[in-house]
Design a protein around this nucleic acid. Structure first.
Length: 926
DNA sequence: TATATCACG
DNA sequence: GACGTACGTGATATAA
């Protein structure tokens, strides 16, 4: 055993809480929450990977009671108990520590911070340097000669300078400052009225707390003086609370913290037990190459001297500003056949944003940034207006594009992007096509569904334990935000190259999982090929008739004022904000004293449409208000907003489709959302009427008839339903006839309506409550209908049970094309939560299956149109509907192709039927 | 930033 | 016996 040279002390308890709150929820297959355990494990892996330490320990809080609660009972007393999802993770984190062969140290009556302080003292006395791994400001008092800190959440070293930035004083005065300003999160009182700034100023002036308190009467500001004199004792107690003990009776001697040779099998077993598949991949990759830790113990004194700071991910990023360097990178990318690719632009809208730079990554840690259009920060201050002397010299944009074009188009070089649709749009605007590509966002989406988000930063934290430089750190935020072209080149390079680097690293991690987790086909046939199709749809956009919308807006506006006057009159002339549910609730249930008021879960009056409809027969106000709400919604959300969204350059609106957003595999549309344009009411339809074709062209709307119900019939193998579909005609009337045993001829419309509601209910995972609410009938009656339905179609029950069982067993259900729809909460101990998850599980294969089918159609459609020599363009997708724009004289032929492709997109045991219309407006075509 | 409401499939 | 529910989205205004 050798004497310690460098000791790393990890604040385990602090980390658990931060990881728990910072990471999305994750559960083990058995339902145990493990997000904090996962964060902890990746943090340790990363920390140990290139740690130079010879002694390492993870230190935990033991119990809530410590010597501090003896001194001051309120200390940390207001802390709520740990969340239920965190409690089972405490023992697991200690288990993780042991899996790394590290000591997990805790001591009754002492906080982790005191043990860390004590070990730090012992280490320094033994001549070693110390790194404390924590983001807790309470540990900053320990920073000093031989001791520094590392914040694993922010991936940042904390030295004297950082402490000074935080507290305004040197580390050895931190205790005095904290004693004065207190700490609300720990319930340390401090002196009332004194914050960090004032405390630092006082300590700087008087030297230390005792001197300050002794000379408090000299202070000029009267309030401050009184407070200090009155609360001197409180300050002394506070100091006792914040000062860490360096004399804790540590349960394990320092010498025993020495690093043991690694036992990767032990760690792999632990990861396997927790279901950490991606970590196992990393372990397996590492096991053969990693040298035993013991031999990595300090050999050269140089690195031992400088307290080694842990581990940034090793990186070597190059700023490319000359053609020779660019050629070198392009040649190497071309030779490698694989390159991480990312673009930086001036904005989020790919149609309006200008390209600022491009980054490439060749291997983990090896990436470059090629600026295309930067105005240096210095140029701003150049009063002469000429080019600033130190303005960076960049490669001319035309040269960069000329070099990138063949690389991006080369089918032999795989370009890996994160949300590469965006980069595709930007490059398409410059005439560059991306030929062969992968998208890490989509990989993550098909593998892990909605169990977490799929942003690059989030994935890096999750899979690589690496915190990326944030956009805000580079460009600022709020009113100080600047566009990327104003960012100094060195900062821009660090940020942009990192994105390409991380994208490539994620690719290495995620792509192999496709095969292992049987997701190759979903990714290769459903998701990836859709990217260029959607990119083209977004670029094409759809024309809206601006004058028509503006006229509508005016009309709505006028009627809104009229309605408002009427409503105010009905409220005894008392004006109020009709848009405020809160004020409306008071008017209805307090001023007018209408009966039957319900409260929402936050204790406010509920004023939803259903409530207002119930009130309509008691008073004229609710009906007027419903009208007002409808028009207000239409004006605010559609007419006005849509006009504002027209792209001046194209005269069209360009929505953005999210490919990796929904739990079921559907697309979602935003900015503007074109998947919820009104149709159900006459007034609403007027908005749809303003979506038009260019002169000489027509709009075609083609939608799947009853696709979800057909999927139910197919997937659940419901013979009766299949027959009904085979017979064609009115499916709801047929099921009404079959379920209620009445003849199809002269079907009662009320009966048909009930059958329709049950048909929909099945798709949503039916419940008597839901059906009763939908139909406005008693729950008992709804229950009887469901029983009748189940009796006629017994296979539906089997399907529902089978689906729930699958969800419980695997944590997800699958669509007929193999997409996973994850079902978190399926084992929740709360019955309501579980029921919710069960209904979602039943809906998953149905909604998800329909999403798969229309995606298949969209992927095949462009080529099918080209093959027939047709010029039609796909413009919109609305879940079961496609909207195209076609030259007037090609509409008939286009409809034939569209129908053919859509109906052949899946072969089911029931036919798929597509209904299409042709017109000048979307309203008329639908 | 959260909540209530309402537009769509 | 009580709980709290139809499935999936996004945009808006209000209120905090």
């Amino acid at each position: 055993m050798t004497a310690p040279r460098h000791v790393t002390l990890i604040d385990g308890s602090g980390f658990i809480f931060r990881a728990f709150h910072g990471l999305p929820p994750m559960t083990r297959p058995d339902g145990t929450p493990v997000n904090a355990v996962y964060g902890f494990t990746t943090m340790l892996m990363k920390l140990l990977a290139d740690s130079q330490s010879d002694h390492v320990a993870v230190i935990f809080d033991s119990s809530r009671k410590t010597f501090r609660s003896e001194i001051y009972p309120e200390y940390k007393a207001h802390r709520p108990p740990a969340p239920d999802e965190l409690v089972p993770q405490f023992p697991l984190v200690r288990e993780a520590t042991r899996a790394f062969d590290l000591p997990a140290i805790e001591l009754e009556g002492f906080e982790a911070d005191d043990l860390i302080a004590t070990y730090a003292r012992l280490a320094v006395e033994a001549g070693a340097s110390v790194t404390i791994v924590s983001s807790d400001k309470d540990l900053m008092q320990l920073v000093g000669p031989g001791v520094d800190m590392y914040d694993p959440m922010k991936n940042r070293a904390i030295g004297e300078a950082e402490v000074r930035e935080k507290f305004g004083v040197a580390p050895d005065k931190v205790v005095d400052v904290q004693a004065l300003c207190g700490d609300s999160s720990d319930n340390v009182p401090g002196v009332p009225g004194i914050g960090v700034k004032t405390a630092a100023q006082l300590i700087e002036e008087y030297g230390d707390l005792d001197t300050l308190l002794a000379r408090a009467s000299e202070i000029k500001q009267p309030k401050r003086r009184e407070s200090l004199i009155e609360h001197a004792e409180l300050a002394r107690i506070s100091r006792q609370l914040v000062r860490l003990r360096t004399d804790a009776p540590v349960p394990v001697p320092l010498a025993d913290l020495d690093v043991k040779p690694p036992a990767p099998e032990k760690l792999a077993a632990f990861c396997a037990a927790q279901g950490f598949r991606s970590l196992m991949g990393r372990l397996n990759a590492k096991i053969p190459t990693t040298a035993p830790t013991a031999t990595r113990a300090i050999v050269d004194t140089a690195s031992a001297e400088a307290p080694s700071l842990p581990p940034k991910v090793e990186s070597d990023y190059e700023l490319v500003t000359d053609l020779a360097a660019l050629d070198r990178w392009v040649a190497q990318a071309s030779k490698a056949g694989l390159v991480g690719f990312d673009t930086e632009t001036t904005g989020l809208d790919p149609l309006r944003a200008k390209l600022v730079g491009v980054s490439l990554a060749l291997a983990p840690g090896r990436a470059c940034y090629i600026p295309v259009m930067h105005s240096s920060g210095e140029a701003q201050g150049d009063l002469l207006g000429g080019p600033s002397a130190d303005a960076p010299k960049l490669i001319p944009a035309a040269d960069i594009l000329a070099r990138l074009k063949p690389l991006l188009a080369d089918p032999a070089v795989l370009k890996v992007g994160h949300n590469i649709k965006y980069d595709m749009q930007v490059m398409a605007g410059l005439g560059l096509a991306i030929q062969s590509f992968d998208d890490t966002m989509l990989l993550s989406y098909v593998l892990d569904g909605a169990s977490h988000g799929h942003g690059l930063d989030e994935l890096c934290l999750l899979h690589l334990g690496h915190r990326n430089i944030s956009f805000a750190e580079v460009c600022g935020s709020g009113r100080n935000q600047v566009t990327f072209d104003r960012v100094p080149l060195d900062k821009a390079c660090a940020y942009a190259a990192e994105d390409a680097d991380m994208t490539l690293r994620l690719h290495g991690l995620l792509k192999p999982r496709l095969l292992l987790e049987r997701m190759v086909s979903v990714y290769e046939t459903l998701e990836r090929p859709l990217v260029p199709v959607i990119a083209a749809m977004e670029r094409d956009g759809i024309k809206v008739d601006r004058p028509q919308l503006m006229a509508l807006s005016e009309d709505f506006g006028r009627r809104l004022t009229e309605l408002e006057t009427e409503v105010v009159a009905l409220n005894n002339g008392e004006a109020f904000n009709l848009g405020s549910p809160q004020q409306l609730g008071k008017v209805l249930f307090e001023t007018l004293n209408l009966p039957g008021g319900k409260k929402t879960k936050t204790g406010q009056w509920a004023t939803g449409a259903d409530v207002l409809e119930d009130l309509a027969h008691l008073h004229p106000l609710p009906a007027r208000l419903l009208d007002w709400r409808q028009l207000s919604k239409l004006k605010g959300t559609y007419t006005d907003a849509l006009v504002a969204q027209i792209n001046p350059a194209t005269g069209r609106v360009h929505t953005s489709y999210a490919l990796a957003a929904t739990t079921t595999g559907r697309l979602s549309s935003s900015d503007p959302n074109l998947q919820n344009i009104p149709i159900r009411t006459e007034e609403g339809r007027k908005i749809r009427h303003a979506f038009v074709a260019e002169p000489g062209k027509r709009l075609i709307s083609a939608d799947y008839s009853q696709i979800e119900l057909r999927l139910v019939a197919h997937v659940a193998e419901i013979e009766g339903l299949r027959d009904a579909f085979a017979d064609g005609a009115d499916i709801h009337a047929i099921t009404a006839s079959q379920v209620f045993g009445v003849p199809l001829d002269g079907m009662d419309s009320a009966l048909r309506r009930r059958a329709k509601a049950i048909n929909f209910g099945i798709i949503y995972g039916i419940s008597p409550f839901g059906l009763a609410a939908q139909l406005g009938i008693p729950q008992g009656e709804a229950k009887a209908y469901i029983e009748a339905y189940f009796a006629r179609y017994p296979e539906i029950r089997t399907f529902m049970e089978r689906t729930k069982e699958e969800a419980r067993e695997k944590g997800f259900v699958t669509t007929l094309f193999g997409r996973k729809v994850f079902t978190p909460g399926i084992k929740d101990k709360n019955g309501a939560m579980r029921a919710f998850a069960e209904r979602a599980a039943i809906n998953g294969p149905i909604q998800g299956g329909a999403a798969d089918i229309i995606k298949r159609a969209m992927i095949r459609l462009p080529a099918a149109l080209v093959a027939e020599g047709l010029k039609a363009r796909l413009l919109l997708q609305v879940h079961d509907e496609l909207v195209l724009e076609a030259p007037e004289d090609e509409t008939e032929a286009t409809v034939r192709v569209v129908k053919r492709v859509m109906e052949a997109a899946a072969t089911l045991s029931v036919p798929l039927l597509v209904e299409a219309g042709i017109a000048d407006s979307w309203d008329a075509a639908h």
